[in-house]
Design a binder for these strands. Sequence first.
DNA 1: GCATTTCTACTACTATTGTAGTATTTATAG
DNA 2: CTATAAATACTACAATAGTAGTAGAAATGC
Lengths: 125, 125
Amino acid sequence: MRAKRISRFEFQLLERLWELGPSSVREVQEALPPEHRPAYTTVQTMIYRLEQKGAVRRVKKTGNAHIFEAVLARTTVHKRLVADLLEMFGGSPASVMSCLVETGKLTLSDVRAIERELSKREKKL
Amino acid sequence: MRAKRISRFEFQLLERLWELGPSSVREVQEALPPEHRPAYTTVQTMIYRLEQKGAVRRVKKTGNAHIFEAVLARTTVHKRLVADLLEMFGGSPASVMSCLVETGKLTLSDVRAIERELSKREKKL
DNA sequence: GCATTTCTACTACTATTGTAGTATTTATAG
DNA sequence: CTATAAATACTACAATAGTAGTAGAAATGC
């Protein structure tokens, strides 16, 4: 059972599903930002593809509409994305962090929070 | 002047170029890991496409071979990749870091190194 | 100087992603 | 019950990404 690659836009749809919980195609479509909201059938196609990739499943029917939910947890997919990026960086998390710092997105307090999380974790082991 | 999207494999080729410095198609191809080394002309096509995207340029000729080099610095492209990922995470660097921590890739000393880098930077401003 | 090797330039094909139309089925309002 | 509204299932097509073959030009070995 392959964990197939999930494209950018597919990922956007998954985000909606995580946010909304089990939803119809219509609900997902309407949850997309108006400045980039493709046609209903476009969203439908994408959700069908996610289904084929095993990333989404039908859970029930409400009226004549299928209700879909994400199969994987958000954090699972997030971890995979980060792992992919990490691989592209030659496995060096320090360089990923450096980039975050240089784009000014990572503040000292972010880092201190992580540090606390980590010390806690290391104590447990 | 559009900064066009760079695909996974194109990124691999750029990595080789950054590593090797200005190189011929052959050199790039041979620098790829044997377990996934496509045909010479495949690499050639990709490099041509990178050229069209403005990510690579011809610098000279050696024998009958063109020598290519990356136009952008590695760190520039890395930053863009990280920025993209960050956007997918809703702009929250903390959640990116959490993922790194949870996959066990980020150690306490990595974090402390970053923290030092950041304090230094903040003092300068 | 010519044969051989190597590279280029071009073309081609498949898979994936993004986009949406159309025909049919299903539910729902009266 | 039937007209209508909505969703489905299916098909299609363009753009990008990945892969590679082929014809011909250019350098190289002798």
